[in-house]
Amino acid sequence: MSEMLNVALPKGRLGEKVYAMFEKAGFECPSIRENNRKLIFENPEAGVRYFWVKPSDVAIYVERGAADIGVAGKDILLEYAPDVYELLDMELGKCRMAVAAPKGFCDNSRRPLKVATKFENIAKRYYASLGRDIDIIHLNGSIEIAPILGLSDVIVDIVETGKTLVENDLCVIEEVLPISARLIANKANFKFKQRDIRALADSLQQQINNRTEVQS
């Protein structure tokens, strides 16, 4: 049982896509496709155990070694800087971290900029690199309404299609960085399960390459 590969998958659409890739790589676990509320699935024959966790918790499971590997967004990795290996850019769940403001926004550089965000560390680092003094307002959701209600001047958030922004009369004014899902591994467990993890990573890399070829 100890030799099972433990995988933390992010709940949701991204996790399903990731599982499909893992399945193709030979780590199948058919029971995971059954429609039920179970969170842990294992297939002793393939030597793999999957569990669904909240996307922002994947890095914690991996850093603490409850999962050997997992897939987490680059946003989470930059925000919480877990001590893990980042083995692969899965090139899934692509989006960008951006600064958005109400249309026609003009930065008043004589006072600190009020920034509402879920990603405090990313925002702080970004504005520090610009030398801009900011006042951070940490929110856990519905970030878009902060500028509308005058709570903040701008927001720093993940933008996928930009639809939510448009519906709330906001627009992207600066891009902070591109985001995508990454394959991460616990540093200690990686050393003891290196062969499995490397084989998996190689197969995933192959699938990613094939996908890019088809697209181009």
Partner: peptide, 9 residues
């Protein structure tokens, strides 16, 4: 140094 079963150096 790592010991198997401990998720930390």
């Amino acid at each position: 140094g790592y010991i198997k079963g401990i998720p930390d150096g």
